[in-house]
Design a protein around this nucleic acid. Structure first.
Lengths: 251, 251
DNA sequence: CGGCCACTTGAGCGTACTCAAAACGCGTGG
DNA sequence: CCACGCGTTTTGAGTACGCTCAAGTGGCCG
């Protein structure tokens, strides 16, 4: 079990190769499955990487879009600026996740993308991206990425408007668990790569409520927490916590 | 001012032609701007329409996707089934809006689409749609539609997790206002085509809270309501209601 | 060691929910 | 035409969940 962030980062670094095979960019990074005409493009796409330090912006909302990105290593968050000047987290990104697709509408990003620690991000510039899209296979792939993001955000909105604090936090833990599992890690034992404050912002709750709820789950023996490390002891209890009846029908 | 739903529907019917020019399908319904090779496709797309009665489903969640749709007349809602069996409204659709794009990921719809009154929906079958996407112009158009939906859902999620009841209802009214304005109607005087219960479901509030909040806005002289008809008397007051400071920063 | 930040935990409060009753609109049928 | 029934909306009173404010702990780094 990774007990410190440094140790955890080592683990991540060691498994970078494995991560690539499950990266959402998929064949974008594996030229051999692409039509010959496009094999020229990808070495460039693979070369271009951006390194970010904690707190640095990959892009700002309203920036002109210059490319799309996939997380190679590290963690990022996407934030939407709110009318009151605050900013609201709408997504956490880990290795293999894709960013910047929301900019395809107006050619300008709708959100900020901020590194939560040291990050390495793969870039495909917009002109390369557009050439890429002339090919049906990649075009379908990109549409799937877009559609998946629509589904994810729809479910997130539905959750925020429907579920109680306990349900939201349980959902969040299960979601993190699944994401680690998808990447080949344990679904029972993993690290939350964000602060309580950030979880709260993401779930529409205060960090005190996050803290209290995690303590509650721990008191129930459903999880064990040490700082940011989670051990899920009773997955089904968390699931049944989510499925609890709540208000609001479609009318 | 439209005082009854029947009267309102007449208004809608009369302006169908105007609506088409602002339809999100855009050039899909206007073959003359398309490459010659595709002019064959669109007469078919234009022919195929579906008529729905109030309460009928255009498609169910988990249905295999057979096409994409644009609303020609009438109103629909998209609902996401929740784990507890309830269902949560994630979008209201009026003429010119597009549905079914969330299915492009798994080739199965993620949500239910339900007619809220008599509807007419334009259909493009999936195979025609895919042929269409071989063309760059239409392909870009579809990606823009997808990206716009991502932006919309992100903003909706952010609102649900951040704003108070008054802020949410004010935002909702302004959003409806803008949507009517985009379609060439008055932004000050329009009809809510959904019940208080449905607004509440959409905003993550109870219908009592919706009712109370609308009464509050009316007491403040910001709006006047008669049944489902809204008259906005002080747009800027609603705007400033939204911009009010609220909790939650990105940490 | 001291300062800082993230986190935990407690006590009190406020917003929005719950339950309830009554008014209203609308379609149906006598 | 009015009576009736049903669903929607309004409004009220009480409650509860999650926020606010606050104090205290623990870990990390200079």
């Amino acid at each position: 079990m990774a007990n410190t962030e440094a140790e955890f980062q080592d683990t991540v670094a060691l498994s970078t190769r494995a991560v690539c095979s499950q990266c959402a960019f998929g064949e974008l990074c594996f030229p051999h499955v692409l039509p010959v005409a496009f094999q020229i493009l990808f070495p460039l796409a693979r070369e271009k990487r951006i390194r970010l330090k904690r707190g640095e912006f990959l892009f700002h909302a309203r920036d002109q879009q210059t490319g799309i990105y996939a997380v190679k290593a590290g963690f990022l968050k996407t934030c939407l600026p709110m009318p009151d000047g605050q900013s609201k987290i709408v997504g956490f990104l880990a290795m293999g996740d894709v960013l910047g697709l929301d900019g395809l509408d107006r050619r300008a990003h709708a959100s900020d993308a901020i590194a939560m620690n040291g990050c390495e991000v793969c870039v495909i510039s917009l002109d390369k991206f557009e050439k890429l899209l002339e090919h049906p296979v990649e075009s379908v792939h990109v549409r799937q990425l877009l559609a998946r993001e629509i589904t994810r955000l729809g479910e997130h909105a539905a959750a925020l408007g429907t579920l109680s604090a306990k349900q939201l936090v349980a959902t969040f833990l299960l979601d993190m668990s699944r994401r680690w599992e998808d990447r080949g890690y344990s679904k029972h034992e993993f690290m939350l790569f964000m602060s309580r404050k950030e979880i709260g912002n993401y779930l529409g709750l205060t960090f005190e409520t996050i803290s209290r709820t995690l303590s509650y789950f721990q008191a129930k023996q459903w999880i064990t927490m040490h700082a940011k490390n989670v051990l899920i002891r009773d997955m089904s209890a968390l699931h049944s916590q989510v499925a609890r009846a709540s208000w609001g029908s479609a009318g």
